[in-house]
């Protein structure tokens, strides 16, 4: 994990071990550049695969476990990755024993609500904190940041009492509101807007744009990458949240997926295959969102805006 270079590196070892390299007599500058590029690409793939090995373990283990048949020992050491008799029965069994559809819908409601709240309100607040001057700005920001460190468990009972007083116990709205906006999102959006180039803003302002238009038409599009980050993080936070929904939600029909899935890990039965299948089902939407949103990072918004 020590050196993950940034470089299309000219790795001496690689260069020496490449037979084609030796064959090239008196390479022109052009060819050299091409070789370097090929080597760079190869080097990058080597690194990518290296990191892949470091990262992939748990995911692989879970997929493999979720596909194993009942006769295989899940905990055998050394672990076996290829199931002897692969089966999808575990997935069917999970769907059979739990109302996954309901759980997924509930989780989707809370998570999508959290994404909207965090992206919209987080951006608005971040924009005000980054681009507007007003009395108390620094204090407000410091207060937000410092509360990031308070462990939720410490304030949990107090939050629960507030939720009760608002009549939101056993409602999905009650599960949503405490995660509908997090300081983390405000922080990320503020950082994004801080590095926004003032010239763009000024140009738009000269064109007579109002404050809201500036925010919505100029600032938001140029912070698309950060919005994607906030969307992923807030979706994940809401999707994975366990303790709070557990405390607020009472009826099984209101459970989110994370709460529902722990029922697979019971005192009478704890089949790791089913637990793994449930986990994979829970992870897929998060990864799908990640795949969809990571493209936003590579739109090259920043440079277009700066050039303008």
């Amino acid at each position: 994990m020590s050196a993950i270079p940034t470089t299309p590196p000219v790795d001496p070892v690689e260069a020496g071990s490449d037979p084609r390299r030796g064959a090239t007599v008196d390479p022109s500058a052009n060819q050299r550049a091409r070789h370097r590029r090929v080597l760079g690409v190869a080097g990058r793939y080597v690194l990518l695969i290296l990191v892949l090995f470091i990262s992939v373990g748990p995911f692989l283990w879970q997929i493999s476990t979720s596909l194993k048949g009942p006769e295989e020992n899940i905990f055998a050491f050394p672990p076996t990755l290829i199931p002897e008799s692969p089966t999808l029965n575990n997935y069917l069994a999970v769907m059979d024993s739990l109302p996954l559809g309901t759980y997924l819908l509930n989780s989707a409601y809370v998570s999508i609500g959290a994404v909207i709240g965090n992206c919209l309100f987080g951006a608005m607040a971040g924009y005000a904190l980054a681009r507007m001057r007003f009395r108390g700005r620094e204090g407000l920001f410091a207060m937000m940041i410092a509360t990031l460190v308070i462990p939720f468990e410490v304030i949990m009972i107090s939050v629960f009492l507030v939720t009760r007083d608002l009549g939101l116990i056993n409602t999905l709205t009650g599960a949503l509101l405490p995660v509908a906006l997090t300081v983390l999102s405000i922080f990320i959006m503020r950082q994004a807007f801080v590095s926004l180039h003032p010239e763009i803003e000024e140009a738009a302002r000269v064109d007579g744009a109002g404050e809201w238009q500036l925010f919505w038409k100029v600032a938001m599009p140029s912070a698309r990458g950060s919005l994607a980050v906030v969307a992923i993080f807030s979706f994940m936070a809401a999707w994975d949240d366990f303790l709070w929904p557990l405390i607020v939600l009472r009826d099984a029909s209101k459970f989110t997926l994370t709460v529902g899935l722990v029922f697979l890990d019971g005192q009478f039965s704890a089949d790791q295959r089913l637990i793994a299948a449930g986990t994979i089902i829970a992870i897929i939407p998060v990864l799908a969102l990640f795949i969809a949103l990571q493209k936003q990072f590579f739109r090259g918004v920043g440079q277009a805006a700066v050039k303008g």
Partner: peptide, 21 residues
């Protein structure tokens, strides 16, 4: 009937006891 998982049960009980629920 309400069923509570073991995980998080103690937090849930304390919150309920504090709120009278």
């Amino acid at each position: 009937w309400i069923d509570i998982p073991f995980e998080g049960a103690s937090e849930r009980l304390l919150a309920d006891a504090s709120a009278g629920t």
